[in-house]
């Protein structure tokens, strides 16, 4: 039986209280809620799993089946700490804070045999380092997942297709367009065209600071695709700077209709539907 095994088996309560005290004094972990009961419970659980893992003699290969429970608990703890706003590096300090209490007890147990001490400290240290790296990785992964989810949400949020009139849709584009976003936005528009049966769509790029070749090509392809479906697109809000870029890039806008402002495009769209806007005769004083 290794010393670490003995310490975890016989002095679990002692390790736990020392560890919790260690956590409570750590500023980073205070932010993670080290004084809360939730984290204390999770710490106790982790220590139990650690004891079992060491007992089963799985060594330091923390991917081995004997460490499954430990990995699960670490994943839960990581989620908890990330939610509290800790960075992945800060999450790792949770595992590293176990080092001092554990080392002290290992040291006490092997005080009379320095060679054993060095050896035991090394294996304990290695195990905790690996667990620390594992929890960092888990934390990073969950953060990446959050970021990609937010990106998708943002894409959806930032691209509303609005109905201006029966048969007229508008897509006001705002912000920088990259190739991926343009593609998603355009697919969205074409789907809305089918859903609403609107024969006219205005793509307004007033809020787009720059247009590169790829984006310009995506715009043109969308116009072409809409035409194949039986709908017509008008591009509005092309600022002089973008117009010169488009010409400079050698992109041929062909017979795509363009208008300076969204209002101009709307007027054209109304005319195509044989509609007109008229002033009401003397409506000002008629509400008596």
């Amino acid at each position: 039986m290794s010393v670490l095994q003995q310490v975890l088996a016989n002095k679990e309560a002692e390790v736990l209280s020392a560890w919790i005290a260690e956590q409570a004094s750590d500023r980073t972990l205070q932010k993670g809620g080290s004084k809360s009961d939730a984290l204390k419970e999770q710490s106790a659980e982790l220590l139990g799993a650690l004891r079992e893992g060491v007992q089963q003699g799985n060594g330091e290969d923390i991917q081995a089946p004997g460490w499954t429970r430990t990995r699960e608990i670490l994943t839960d703890i990581s989620a908890h700490l990330i939610k509290r706003g800790l960075t992945p590096a800060e999450v790792a300090t949770f595992v590293f804070s176990l080092k001092r209490p554990l080392f002290q007890l290992v040291q006490t147990a092997t005080a009379k045999t320095p060679e054993v001490l060095a050896n035991e400290l090394w294996t304990t240290n290695q195990l905790l380092d690996r667990l620390g790296l594992f929890i960092t990785e888990v934390a990073l992964e969950s953060r990446e997942k959050t970021i990609s989810r937010q990106q998708t949400e943002m894409l959806e949020l930032s691209t509303p297709v609005v109905k201006l009139w029966d048969g007229i849709l508008a897509l006001p584009l705002i912000g920088t367009l990259d190739s991926e976003r343009t593609q998603i936005v355009m697919e969205n528009l074409l789907q809305e065209i089918v859903r609403t049966g609107a024969g006219l769509a205005i793509i307004d790029i007033t809020g787009v600071p720059t247009v590169d070749t790829l984006v310009a090509q995506h715009l043109l392809k969308t116009v072409a695709a809409a035409r194949l479906m039986g709908a017509e697109c008008i591009i509005s809000g092309i600022r002089p700077q973008i117009a010169s870029t488009i010409v400079h890039l050698g992109v041929d806008l062909g017979d795509v209709s363009t208008k300076a402002t969204l209002a101009d495009a709307f007027a054209v769209a109304l005319r195509k539907l044989h509609l007109m806007v008229a002033r009401m005769p003397h409506s000002g004083t008629s509400t008596e």
């Binding site: 074409l190 789907q191 049966g197 609107a198 024969g199 035409r227 194949l228 479906m229 039986g230 709908a231």
Partner: peptide, 25 residues
């Protein structure tokens, strides 16, 4: 009634169907 995915693909394929009139439904 051409579907959006079909239209996008046709454009990418390089087929503009010039001379064919289209409508949504």
């Amino acid at each position: 009634g051409m579907q959006p995915a079909v239209a996008i693909t046709l454009v990418e394929l390089g087929l503009a169907l010039t001379g064919v009139r289209t409508a949504l439904n």
